[in-house]
């Protein structure tokens, strides 16, 4: 079993090296900290201020938790855009021909986003949150951090599935993650409880990892039992794995179709 996993892990590791090289080309630690992080913290503050104005400090606390976790979702969804870079770089045909599974390559290829997103969310939750009334008990901090990691990872898997769909529609590479993030922001319990919306929207939101993991994070801050927090987190993780499997099927099908039709290099 371990031997069977060794090869994919090797592919993911090498692919991730490319991902972090891309990250270093885009950001220095200064531009990440004062540029990107500052922008994301401003976004959290933007929504929290609205909550403060319309509903007072209590809803502001609700908003800061939702929007702080949302930052890692937004970053993780960048995988949709960065996966299409392979086509632009002309390397998609090589990936299609290589014996390494495309899913493992793409899984590692954009890992910089969930890592960076996790950092952003942690800063937003633990440094910005207290300014808006969020308090953390010391024993909750590692659990909250783990929930952030799971949210970034689960969203990344969901993003990989979307990336497989968008690979053949490169012009939408920035539109799809932007719209998806806004839909999640609206309907997954980030700004208002899911119960505010009609029940059918809640049922759709259940297939998004963020819904369950954010629920677990809120339950943690409200001192719910650890069993309940664990159950919601496990559900979120399970949904993330489901999207990874879907992404695998979508990548395999896309490249298989491309090889048969000779269209791997073309954006139809």
């Amino acid at each position: 079993m371990l031997a069977r996993l060794a090869l994919p892990a090797h592919v993911v590791r090498h692919s991730a090296a490319n991902a972090f090289a891309d990250m270093r080309a885009i950001y220095t630690w200064r531009t990440w900290t004062f540029g990107w992080l500052g922008r994301m913290l401003a976004q959290v503050t933007f929504f929290v201020l609205l909550g403060r104005v319309v509903a007072g400090p209590e809803h502001a606390t609700y908003l800061v938790i939702g929007n702080a976790l949302m930052t890692c979702v937004i970053e993780s969804l960048t995988v949709v855009a960065s996966t299409t870079w392979e086509r632009t770089a002309g390397t998609l045909a090589l990936l299609a021909a290589a014996p390494a599974g495309p899913t493992w390559v793409f899984l590692g290829r954009s890992l910089q986003w969930p890592v960076s997103g996790t950092g952003t969310s942690l800063v937003a939750l633990f440094l910005l949150g207290p300014f808006f009334g969020v308090t953390w008990r010391p024993e909750h901090i590692p659990v909250a951090a783990l929930l952030v990691v799971l949210t970034a990872a689960g969203t990344y898997c969901f993003g990989l599935f979307l990336a497989a769909l968008v690979l053949n529609a490169g012009r939408l590479r920035n539109v799809v993650p932007g719209v998806t993030a806004l839909l999640m922001m609206a309907f997954c319990g980030v700004q208002v409880p899911i119960g505010y919306w009609p029940s059918w929207i809640g049922r759709i939101a259940d297939i998004v990892p963020l819904t369950h993991l954010l629920h677990a994070l809120r339950a943690l801050t409200e001192d719910a039992s650890s069993g309940y927090v664990f159950a919601r987190a496990a559900l979120g993780l399970l949904v993330g794995v489901f999207w990874l499997v879907m992404a695998h099927l979508a990548f395999e099908s896309l490249l298989h179709r491309g090889r048969r039709r000779g269209t791997v290099d073309f954006d139809p």
Binding site: L50, V54, A55, L182, A186, Q191, V192, P193, Y196, W197
Partner: peptide, 10 residues
């Protein structure tokens, strides 16, 4: 929709 949901909820 996002902004209105926040103000409507409140």
């Amino acid at each position: 929709v996002v902004f209105l949901s926040i103000s409507d909820y409140a």
